[in-house]
Write a protein that binds this DNA or RNA. Sequence first.
DNA 1: AACTGACCATTTAAACAAATCGGTCAGAAA
DNA 2: TTTCTGACCGATTTGTTTAAATGGTCAGTT
Lengths: 206, 206
Amino acid sequence: MVTDREPKEDKADLILSAAQKLFGLYGAEKTSMREIADDLHMSKASLYYYFPDKENLYKAVIEKEQAEFLDTLEKDIQDNTDPAESLRRYALNRLSYFKYLVNLGRIGPASIPDFKPLIADSFKAFREKEKKIVMQILEKGESSGQFKTNNTYEVATLFLDIMRGLRSIFLNNKKLFSINDEDYKQLSHQVAAATDIFIKGLMYKE
Amino acid sequence: MVTDREPKEDKADLILSAAQKLFGLYGAEKTSMREIADDLHMSKASLYYYFPDKENLYKAVIEKEQAEFLDTLEKDIQDNTDPAESLRRYALNRLSYFKYLVNLGRIGPASIPDFKPLIADSFKAFREKEKKIVMQILEKGESSGQFKTNNTYEVATLFLDIMRGLRSIFLNNKKLFSINDEDYKQLSHQVAAATDIFIKGLMYKE
DNA sequence: AACTGACCATTTAAACAAATCGGTCAGAAA
DNA sequence: TTTCTGACCGATTTGTTTAAATGGTCAGTT
């Protein structure tokens, strides 16, 4: 028996990559299954052998990206022992992921089209995974006596919503105009400042 | 000479009120100048005697509401001496204004249409006025030694952006569905929690 | 098991006509 | 003069029809 000579990427992965590329270029709504098939020099019907429909293909692309981010995030954080520093690192990593999604066109002015239930569920699940990680950080801070949080779930939700909110405001402000590096620096600065104040708020002792 | 028997509201104010009502019912884009004129039993051309164009009429409606909010806000805050409490009261008042705007349909799912420059400027000016008020609160806290803010402008901007972000996320989450009182309670709770942590963050002492 | 061309129902795009829109203006009404 | 109006204009929006493209299926080939 011979092992694969070339790393022989799975066909489904090839489709996933092509879809990711074209979705990034034109947006999911403006990319047809025919275009994806042509890009791969295969029949459109073949796509349906690997993915039940377009929505699930899009979902798979999104979840692939989410899984990649969550992996790097967990690896980056588990090395660190100080919960305050972990929180800062989360904010930084999350911002990188945000930039990545914006550069790819996955989010931004052109992503108004209401996400259908299936995709919305993916986002929801992703946020819950994020929340779990932040909760672990908060609990570590709690048990070490550094943080004072009555309810880690609520505080984690609040922190994530604040971060999400700042990104949302940022996108709103930069609507129509393209985003340059200077804009990102401002956002980074604001996110860092918010995280710092938040951490101090958790460390406050009367 | 006889003083006005009836309080005789200015004609421009009558137009303003009718426009406010109809803009609230159908949205500014879906309300025609003809409808406003008909509602007042006057000619459409008459509207243009009092307002140069539709955009400026809409702007006047918005600025009227903004001025009302800023008035109540300043009155509510100037009585209070504790800056932390003032910040909490700002958050509360701002939330009421937000609810008012949502109930009126001024903001929400149906307000996607990009605000034209003139209106955008109104919003920008309004935010600057808000910022000034928050900065005054922060400076009071600074000079009394309760708050520690390196840069009141930046911190005020951050606080306002966090509040704005939480409202934005709230609207995103409640997209399509109508908002009930329970939802507002959740938002109020989150806004209050964020304000508390923010205040503690400003009061933190190493 | 992996893949395809031909096919279908539904959605979207294009094109054109008709209605409606915001806005103007000469002049009537007060 | 100040306030108001009907008639009118170019531009935008809307309605309608027709053609093309799209997501998805399936019998059958490789």
